[in-house]
Nucleic acid binder design. Structure first.
Length: 759
DNA sequence: CTAGGGTTAG
């Protein structure tokens, strides 16, 4: 963006004081009489009544009647307050009829009225024909564009305004600052700040408020707080702005301290304050504070306030209180799209907090249910809805539903949205379709670290390390700064490709160039790399260099590697370490048990068995799900649950027979989830859930379509090699997302390179 | 000034 054109500072730039506070002086013109019916009281009544009178006046209006501008301005003010477009149009028609459209005062108000109603085309048209423009009409037009999510147009209007030599006022600066905020146009925002200082209006409330929120959006909390401190007369907006700045910039506790301070000042709280505090509580998961705040809002007369109810409902969902959230939902007598979005997002985010994949799957289903209900209620999905639902689809590997949402995205013209675009990248990637993921990525207009990181991670997950690294270099060329998550993607790509030197180079680059402190996940990638190459000692050495105790992820990587490369002693050591960290975790015991079983160390087998009994461990819950259209089919081990049971079983038997000819041997003895008996996996009565799901998928989905499955625990080695062979034999792509990672089987190969951390 | 959205190895 060009620097600010010289704004007439050479003379003696003065704001127009009379325009600062009252953009349209209309108070004195209230209670005018209608030229036709002589009613003098209609402005005091509600809008409907007043407009009824106007309608009468319009219908019987004699065009020769003289009308004062003072007749229209208060009427238009009513339209602005009520955001009533139809009435504004009616008044406009009246204005034209009476030939008052040359009156600059009336037409300026009309520009504002159309802008406030969100009809920017009308507003712009009226503005273009204005006989004379002043700071009010310029600013009104700009404000309209900002509200209409077109901040770039607002900035263009601002520059035009300066070019023609009009003086901005406080309102203009406030508006242009919020345009800069939403565009993240830091440079222009700071230039504006310089002018604000030059004019000495930093301490003005509306200016300070706008500055505070501008710096907050620019992730500069210090400057936001400074702006707040300089405000001479802090109003409720100032306080709310500084609290939300803290909340949005990762300092919710400081935000709470400001709230306490605010309560001791003599400031009247409003709806915005409460929604801000409640959302701050979400970040802190501070249910208690949230509840107290909600009670306070009721005490102060906000009971039934929808935004506040939406916020407390969302907080309940975030804290896992589904029943209380549902009760609040049922209590609402009118709901908005925000309510639906909060409901959907609440359930969607519960997936991340679930203790296992089964409850995660349930939360996902509840999110999709809410989305269906929203659809049936006739509420149109917006950007928030679409991105939440897409993230659910990606986690459930529900491609067809994801595609439907994609179609809706195109239909509603939201495709270019950054966040929805990123969500689409993830949906396609997690559903195993890297090509469409990449296509979605190229369609994103402006990319952020997060969208780049998504694409890098997508290539890494799909076993395409070269593309991942190329994407990373393109990102750097584009001038985007990688963060710690980006480097997780980069390092995991290197690990897949066995590129040790590259990995270490990127690891150094991360620490030196970008000053990012390595976290456990980065070490996990490096350890995984050594493990894949069979360099187990180096992997183990690295666990000692982390600087703190390795976590469970690190140990399970080591275990998987030790099993693949036959270093049993190190494997057992790692397994016992893992057991110390997760003493009540059934999958850990099962993995350990299987290791001892395959090493035929029977004493250890009985020892582990006894421990499992003593710990009273729950069963290993082996479930798989497969989504066709919008129906979800569930499969459980032992045929406990299986649609079309007989047919699927027969077909699976046939598949098993056939893969035997391709060299398949049940590799492992394996404990099932229910009995203590050791059963050969291939015995026909005991099939892990994904085997059933694969058979079902092959039978019931179109030949050209991949089969997509989600599984509640990690796959076992046996099923992994079985599905590899099936993908070749049946010439079908099979995608299984287990609790650990994505497996994409094509032509007898899996993108995990057989290092999928299997049971 | 405000409630609701997208990234993470195994």
């Amino acid at each position: 963006m060009a620097s600010l054109p010289s704004i007439a500072v050479s003379g003696n730039p003065k704001l127009e004081p009379e325009l600062r506070r009252t953009p349209v002086p209309h108070e004195k013109s209230r209670n005018v009489s209608c030229p036709k019916c002589q009613s003098t009281t209609f402005l005091d009544a509600n809008l409907e009544r007043s407009l009824l009178i106007v309608r009468e006046a319009l219908s019987s209006f004699n065009e020769s009647t003289q009308v004062e501008s003072s007749f229209y301005v208060p009427l238009l003010q009513e339209c602005i307050e009520k955001r009533s477009m139809s009435n504004a149009q009616m008044v406009h028609a009246h204005i034209v009829k009476t030939g008052t459209h040359e009156d600059p005062f009336v037409m300026t108000t009309l520009v504002n009225a159309y802008a406030k109603c969100g009809y920017m085309e009308c507003s712009q048209k009226v503005f273009d024909r204005l006989p004379e423009r002043n700071v009010v009409s310029w600013t009104g037009l700009m404000t309209g564009y900002v509200h209409d999510s077109k901040p770039e147009v607002a900035i263009r209007v601002f520059l035009q305004m300066l070019e023609v030599g009009a003086y901005p006022n406080s309102y203009t600066f406030g508006t242009i600052l919020s345009a800069c905020s939403s565009m993240l146009h830091v440079k222009l925002g700071k230039q504006i700040h310089a002018y604000i200082i030059k004019y000495g209006i930093e301490s003005e409330t509306s200016i300070g408020n706008a500055l505070c929120s501008f710096y907050s959006k620019c992730r500069s909390l210090g400057s936001a707080v400074d702006a707040f401190r300089r405000i001479g007369d802090k109003d409720v907006i100032s306080w709310t702005a500084v609290i939300s700045a803290c909340s949005d910039n990762g300092e919710p506790e400081i935000g709470l301290r400001y709230f306490t301070e605010m309560l001791s000042e003599d400031v009247e709280l409003n709806e915005f304050t409460f929604t801000t505090i409640l959302s701050l509580c979400c970040g802190l998961r501070a249910l208690d504070v949230g509840r107290q705040t909600y009670s306070l809002s009721i005490k102060l007369g906000f009971q039934g306030n929808l935004p506040i109810k939406n916020s407390i409902m969302y907080l309940c969902l975030k804290c896992g209180l589904i029943d209380e959230a549902n009760r609040l939902f049922d209590e609402m007598d009118s709901i908005s799209s925000v309510t639906w979005n909060a409901l959907i997002a609440g359930h969607a985010q519960m997936m991340d907090l679930s203790k296992d994949e089964i409850s995660a799957h349930q939360s996902g289903s509840q999110a999709l249910d809410a989305f269906m209900k929203m659809h049936r209620s006739g509420t149109k999905p917006d950007l928030f809805t679409l991105s939440s639902v897409l993230s659910v689809c990606s986690r459930l590997v529900a491609l067809e539903q994801g595609e439907q949402v994609h179609a809706q995205t195109i239909k509603s013209g939201f495709l270019a949205d950054l966040i929805v675009g990123t969500a689409l990248v993830n949906t396609y990637s997690k559903c195993g379709d890297i090509n469409r993921a990449n296509k979605a990525f190229t369609e994103i207009q402006t990319r952020t670290v997060i969208s780049w990181t998504s694409m890098i991670a997508a290539f890494a997950q799909h076993g395409q390390p070269q593309q991942a690294l190329q994407q990373f270099e393109e990102m750097r060329l584009a001038g985007e700064k990688p963060n710690k998550v980006t480097f997780i993607g980069v390092l995991s790509a290197c690990s897949h490709a066995g590129m040790v030197d590259e990995a270490l180079r990127y690891f150094e680059m991360m620490k030196r160039t970008y000053e990012i402190k390595p976290i456990m996940e980065h070490y996990a990638c490096l350890i995984d790399m050594y493990v894949r190459l069979g360099r187990l000692e180096e992997a183990f050495d690295l666990t000692q260099k982390i600087g703190c105790e390795p976590n469970d992820v690190i140990w399970s990587i080591l275990i998987a590697g030790c099993r693949s490369h036959g270093n049993l002693e190190l494997g057992f050591y790692a397994a016992e370490e893992l057991l110390k960290l997760k003493p009540k975790d059934t999958p850990t015991y099962v993995m350990l048990l299987n290791m001892y079983l395959s090493a035929e160390r029977w004493q250890d087998v009985s020892r582990i068995r006894k421990m499992m009994k003593d710990e009273k461990l729950g069963k290993l819950q082996d479930w798989s799900w497969l989504t066709i259209k919008d129906k979800v089919y569930s499969f459980a081990v032992h045929n406990r649950s299986c649609p079309s049971k007989e047919e699927v079983e027969n077909y699976l038997g046939m598949l098993l027979n056939e893969v035997k000819h391709h060299g398949y041997r049940s590799q492992n003895l394996h404990v099932t989830d229910e009995e203590d008996e050791v059963e050969p996996l291939s015995s026909s009565a005991h099939h892990h859930s994904e085997k059933l799901a694969v058979a079902f998928g092959l039978l019931y989905t179109q030949k050209a379509m991949p089969v997509r499955i989600v599984k509640s625990i990690s796959m076992c080695r046996d099923c992994h090699s079985f599905i590899k062979l099936v993908s070749e034999m049946a010439a079908r792509e099979i995608i299984v997302r287990d609790s650990k990672r994505l497996h994409r089987f094509v032509n007898g190969h899996c993108c995990c390179g057989d290092f999928g951390n299997l049971l």
